[in-house]
Design a protein around this nucleic acid. Sequence first.
DNA 1: ATGGGGGCCTGCCGGC
DNA 2: TGCCGGCAGGCCCCCA
Length: 283
Amino acid sequence: MPELPEVETVRRGLLPVMEGRVIAQASVNRDGLRWPFPPGMAGRLTGARVNALRRRSKYILADLSTGETLLIHLGMSGRMLISGQMLGAFHHDHPAPQKHDHVVLGMEGGARVTFNDARRFGAMDLMDTGAADSHPLLAALGPEPLGNAFDESYLIARLKGRNTPIKSALLDQHIVAGLGNIYVCETLYRARIAPQTKAGDLAARQVAALVPIIRAVLAEAIEAGGSSLRDFRQADGELGYFQHSFQVYDREGQPCVTPGCGATVGRIVQSGRSSFYCPQCQR
DNA sequence: ATGGGGGCCTGCCGGC
DNA sequence: TGCCGGCAGGCCCCCA
């Protein structure tokens, strides 16, 4: 599921129940997910106030009153569920525990945040807040695509001479942090660039054009997520999954949506991942 | 350093 | 109905 827009949507959904609130009781139902949890994680979370809830790339970071920061990564199948809180006009009681509920944060005031992750590719870790930027998972990340450090000259410099397909380059979190398979497909479709094109073969103006397209694709998805947040207040409390219409992703065999194109969306596999693209529009 | 492939896990879906 | 292969929105690690 979660690329940058989905993670940002989860963060925004968690804000009203977590930011400024104390974790009254943390409970952990297994030793870890992708990696073992840090020693004594439940105890280190219990009693801590969440001073700020931030996002870096696809990671959610909760700065705690204890001087530590909680890192949360949703992996492929991680979900956050809020329960026991007045949400709009509806009150959500605590549902029965579900399979794969791994971590439960009981917040002061009665809300409950449950981290469920079937495939367990997700992660949680704790670090000193002052050293958060040097955490192994964060230290080598490229710039935020919606931030000032990501601009045309940066991307041109990073892609220059690169022999890897542009699809792989944009998926590389060291180059730009937060894009995943869906939004790279959508970006290349809008940019009319074939996913197989070697990154270093693109003209500077083509690379420059990618920057505002990446920003727009992500901003539109975040906007769609915001709409889903308003809807979810009257739905079921599960954060982060929202209906968003894609132009090429997962549309293999369907007609290209570009007016007058008439071609059929294709799919190729690059480094083990599906790339959806229009063979007519994307060159 | 760069690029490609394997592996981690479970669930779901389509075909037989 | 059941079984099986293929697939899934992420990311680390190892190899050439």
